[in-house]
């Protein structure tokens, strides 16, 4: 039976990328998709490991970002985010062929790509640094999903390293910007 999880993740990525409060929901869907994938494949270690990193990274970021000031997205940012996300989703659906790709099923691959692309888009169009960080965190979760389901060890190691770098910079750098020590 087809799982609704990739569809829910695509919808969440398109509509909610770049929103601080939505990050746990998107991460939760990524974790559920990874765990569902772990049940399907013979070697569940890598998906479970990726899910663990998603939970750990998101929990730390949500805790840190909750202590910073954030501006709600302007209507233009929302329209650009959702409109651009829809276009990217259509492009991803058209570009990814049917069948398995490197052991990843087509819906899962599209969901991971959409999470990455919408996260990067949100990081580009949001003016608030907190929103930008939330967008990047969503994109890293998408990369962890891709790496956990079918990628190689190098991709998983790279994704974990990127997550660690994001956490480090977010805690060192955003604190100074969002607390007004430097001009935004």
């Amino acid at each position: 039976m087809a799982s609704p999880l990739p569809g829910l993740l695509i919808a969440a990525s398109v509509v909610l990328s770049g929103l601080r409060w939505a990050l746990p929901w998107q991460a939760g869907l990524v974790v559920l998709t990874l765990l569902a994938g772990a049940l399907d494949v013979g070697a569940p270690v890598r998906p479970c490991l990726a899910a663990l990193f998603v939970v750990a990274g998101t929990a730390a970021l949500v805790w840190g970002l909750a202590r910073l000031e954030d501006r709600a997205p302007m209507p233009g940012e929302r329209i650009s985010g959702v409109g651009g996300g829809l276009m990217l989703t259509i492009l991803a659906v058209l570009a990814v062929p049917r069948g398995l790709v490197d052991a990843v099923s087509r819906p899962d691959l599209i969901a991971a790509l959409v999470a990455i692309l919408c996260g990067v888009l949100a990081a580009a169009i949001r003016r608030s640094v907190v929103g930008q960080c939330a967008g990047l965190a969503g994109a890293v979760n998408g990369l962890l999903l891709l790496a956990g389901l079918g990628g190689r060890d190098a991709v998983l190691a790279g994704a974990v390293a990127l997550q660690a770098a994001l956490l480090l910079v977010a805690f060192v750098c955003l604190r100074r910007i969002a607390w007004g020590r430097e001009l935004t």
Partner: peptide, 12 residues
């Protein structure tokens, strides 16, 4: 980070 997040899945 945005560039690498695009490049790594592209290479994969």
């Amino acid at each position: 980070l945005s560039g690498i997040l695009l490049a790594v899945p592209g290479a994969a």
